[in-house]
Design a protein around this nucleic acid. Sequence first.
DNA 1: ACGTATTTGTTCGTATGTATC
DNA 2: GGATACATACGAACAAATACG
Lengths: 254, 254
Amino acid sequence: MSTSRIAPAMAPIEKTRVAEAAFDQLISFVVKSHWRAGDKIPPERDLCQQLGIARTSLREALKAMEMIGMLDSRVGDGTFVCPRSEFLARPLLWTFTGMDHEELRDILEARLFMERDLAGLAAERATEEQIDKIGEALQVMRQRLGDGASILESDMDFHQAIAEAAHNDVMRMAVQLLRNLIRRWIERKLQMPDVCVKTLDQHAAIYKAIRKRDSAAAREAMRKHLQDTVSLVNQIVQSRASRRNSRRRSAARS
Amino acid sequence: MSTSRIAPAMAPIEKTRVAEAAFDQLISFVVKSHWRAGDKIPPERDLCQQLGIARTSLREALKAMEMIGMLDSRVGDGTFVCPRSEFLARPLLWTFTGMDHEELRDILEARLFMERDLAGLAAERATEEQIDKIGEALQVMRQRLGDGASILESDMDFHQAIAEAAHNDVMRMAVQLLRNLIRRWIERKLQMPDVCVKTLDQHAAIYKAIRKRDSAAAREAMRKHLQDTVSLVNQIVQSRASRRNSRRRSAARS
DNA sequence: ACGTATTTGTTCGTATGTATC
DNA sequence: GGATACATACGAACAAATACG
């Protein structure tokens, strides 16, 4: 009965594991922007002394940060903070091959709901400067599309500008991480024929609604846009799955 | 035990960053389901021998795996593979742990939006058993309220039952984390006069809407309920702040 | 109920290679 | 080229928690 309930993690518990505590502290330093992107953080020997832990333990935390794309260590040079857009760009190896359809579906859906809510909030709360920034991201995207360049970055920037305009740090960061998790699929989506121009049109509709301070319209425009993304990513996954199956069949024949 | 079935020996690490290579290999072992959720993986000393690296280097990779929620190590026991839902929501935890209490407002709002979406999904997707479970949580809460016992646990159980019925692991884990973060404020809220019965009524309304498969009504009922919670927590925060100020004033006088 | 073996947690010392000035 | 700063890597040792006979 009560044992089947999921254990609620008590908040003020004291970390027995040093490396984990160090990891949390490093994360909060990055998240709170005490260390900003590009910053060089103190050398390992200084840090472990500051934290009062052994260098080996600190390195476990440091390495973990590096593996998830928050830090970048270079021998003989130092350790540097990565830009937010690279967080979680690392485990794309697993994101790419390993995640099955259900897990991907949950992430895409969670992103849809959260970005929809953020779009609605942005329409209500954005400052004029923030709305301008959204418009600029849209303009950059249009420009790059005309140049035939990749619009992945400007696509992400557009969504992030909206998230910033919503004035909710928790949701902003959460949705950014989700977006990074599925970055590779967004990239593939944009490589499909005619998708780029459609994406641009949909972005324009979202921007227009936010500019008009029409919260409901912004929500609906974002929902439609991301619903399209969900469908397209599903197509990609399905086509990849069928390709894999046909390879397997032909391999079995030989 | 389970790890001894068909042990595809891991290839020794070549050169370049050892820990990173080990990390990739560990991930691929999980991704390719050589190690499945719940499996116990070989002890560190065996693994580092298989990989031909030092234990400290292996531990850096192992710790990184643990931080992203793919593995769970227990002293004296071993290291085990976590279920997928663990590490799908783990990145969200990082964004939340970095947050101070300053972001209480954002957390409450994020929770409101996400639980509202989950309630809507639950009305659409819940199985009959899951709806019954929500009803049971409601019943337990009513019972405990009659007994004069604390309803905090059953309150949380009710919300979690709805989250489970929404069939989205990412959102379920995310909202559970948020709920645990503000657990103490929920507790204080429930100690306010007349709040318990009001909470019970609101829960009943949510349950009724989900039972009727009325998604819009479920969303609205949940929104109203959590909007109330936001207001009440704000009252608590304000009263505590003013108490602190008055204490400070009286302390200054003495 | 107790003791022992197993396993992870933590630290220190040391050596090596690389980048920067 | 030399000196310095720094990350990378290994091995050994002990502590602490857990499992198991």
